[in-house]
Amino acid sequence: MRTLEDRYRRLLRWYPAEHRRVHEDEMLGVLLATAEPGRSRPPFSEATDLICGGLWLRFRYTPERLRRAGWPDAAALTALLAPLLLLALTLRYALDAVLVARLAEQEVVLVEIVPGGLLTFDMFNAAPAWLAAGTAAVLALAGLRRTTAVVAVAAAVFQMVTQPWEGGTGFVTMTLRAVTPGLLLLMLAAAVLVSPGPRRAVRLLGGTGVGLAVVAACAAVLAGSRLLDLSTPLGNGPPLAATAVAGAAAGVMLLRSAGGRRAAVVLAVPLAAPLLMLGWRAALLLGAGGAG
């Protein structure tokens, strides 16, 4: 049968392990000394107080703790790199839109030439959302924090609410079009509000790091677009390679600092979203196949 001490010990599991290691025995002594005689269960108010105390110690984030953990640096880097990624995605869209318009002028049957669905209907319906995303990115790089936050949140909502329903062309395309920019925009909105400024980000990443990130973003525009894919024999190979090399080099420079590592994790979420969606879809298909 459980004793009062056992029950208090269970409640103390709400505290962080480090705190328990130092204070558990001492706290148990206090709890048992203040308990009413004959009691076998902790009073509700005492249990609530212990749970609240444990949670407070687990999740308290003082400005000093946040600074030591590198979160302001992560915000500064996110406020610099998220706009670059958003601009790359927007420019990729713009290139494809021009391409589709040209092909349409030539009355080429687009669906046959571009498997995966570069449908004119899809392309041009997405224009306002991409325009908003691109605007937020430019505002962020111009240093207009509050305006960026407002425009980015509005663009994210617009992107996430409207885009998935526009003539679906597959899970990955849908995610790249809606979820990835939507999440990037929300992260940008949060980052610009708490960032100590772009100078801090440039100092952390270094001039070379910033240059490499810009090169990777520019190469990614070409790699993601269908332009080279359709117009040159080498296709997307060279820009894809350039993206990988410059991106990896910039990534190494990003991972040098604690703030950079946190920014990398933050930015990996929207970038990994298409892969997660692909995995989810594969699991669904496998499940359906298994059921059939």
Binding site: H19, M27, D49, L50, I51, G53, T62
Partner: peptide
């Protein structure tokens, strides 16, 4: 003072 409140305060005051 309850123990949870006391030790949260002691932790903060020590910090």
């Amino acid at each position: 003072l309850r123990a949870g409140t006391l030790y949260a305060a002691l932790d903060r005051l020590q910090g």
